[in-house]
């Protein structure tokens, strides 16, 4: 309450800083970007070393390998989360099967906000690729995907998405109580509500002048969902053409959704 009880409290005066321990707990589980980068590079090096000179991976396969390694990292992140551990493995599987591609898209977007140069896409390996280079070789679907994702990246940059907000959005994507066949729906809801409240408090606390930042961030989630569904469809079509590397977590997740 404000110091003058008779005055109507302004939003900032009734705010309390988000409970640092909860937000800190969410941040604790964040993987280290340089470690992830090193892991992906090492995996690509191993892959290259295991192939003959005339059996090189094409660009698309390399991108898939990167996505696969990033997906492994995201599963590991979820698995190490204390909140996720509160759920049975059955529920953990159902939630990840539902949102894995959203997590990949959100992870990619956050990397763009943090590191990408104008007109470039920043890869998990630390390389920057000119968007124009991709678009000259891309088909209709990939062109649409790249431009939609770039547009969303620009919006998130304009919103000054920070790491705390990114982590909260990841948890909101993961703990989705609307996923069918979740057994402990109430637990998922509780976590979702708590993260939602923490995100709201954090945005109001760090950007009191931008009262609608919280709403603007939440509005990006359906866009991320829509892009991720298009990514899945695109990857599945490529998979049917035999373009995807086999025996990967990526193909297994695609199979699970289409079986």
């Amino acid at each position: 309450p404000s110091s003058t009880p008779s005055s109507t409290p302004t939003p900032t005066s009734i705010l309390t800083a988000p409970t640092p321990s909860f937000l800190a707990q969410l941040l604790e589980g964040e993987p280290d970007e340089s470690q992830l980068c090193a892991k992906v590079l090492a995996s690509l090096q191993r892959e290259k070393a295991s192939r003959g000179k005339h059996d090189r991976l094409n660009t698309f396969s390399i991108m898939c390998k990167m996505a696969d390694q990033t997906l492994f990292g995201l599963v590991e992140w979820a698995r190490n989360s204390a909140l996720f551990k509160e759920l049975k493995v059955e529920d953990q599987m159902v939630l990840l099967q539902s949102c894995w591609s959203e997590l990949l898209v959100l992870d990619h977007l956050c990397r763009q906000v943090a590191y990408s140069r104008e007109g470039c896409i920043y890869l998990v390996t630390g390389q920057q690729i000119e968007v124009s280079n991709i678009l000259t070789q891309a088909g209709v679907t990939l062109t649409s995907l790249v431009s939609r994702t770039q547009d969303l990246g620009v919006k998130l940059k304009a919103l000054h998405l920070d790491t705390q907000e990114f982590v909260c959005l990841k948890y909101l994507v993961l703990f989705n109580p609307d996923v069918k066949s979740v057994q402990d729906r109430r637990q998922v809801e509780r976590t979702q509500e708590r993260v939602n409240r923490t995100l709201m408090d954090h945005t109001l606390y760090t950007h009191p002048g931008h009262s609608d930042k919280f709403g603007q961030l939440l509005l990006r989630l359906p866009e991320i969902r829509s892009i991720s569904l298009q990514v899945e469809e695109y990857l599945y079509q490529r998979h049917l053409l035999g373009d995807l590397p086999c025996n990967s977590l990526l193909t297994e997740m695609l199979h699970a959704k289409h079986s």
């Binding site: 492994f72 599963v75 590991e76 698995r79 493995v89 599987m93 099967q97 977590l249 297994e252 699970a256």
Partner: peptide
């Protein structure tokens, strides 16, 4: 669906000491 996700189950179920 769950049957298809043997790798995911392994990743989630694996014992950290293995």
């Amino acid at each position: 669906k769950k049957k298809d996700n043997a790798l995911l189950r392994y990743l989630l179920d694996k014992d950290d000491n293995t």
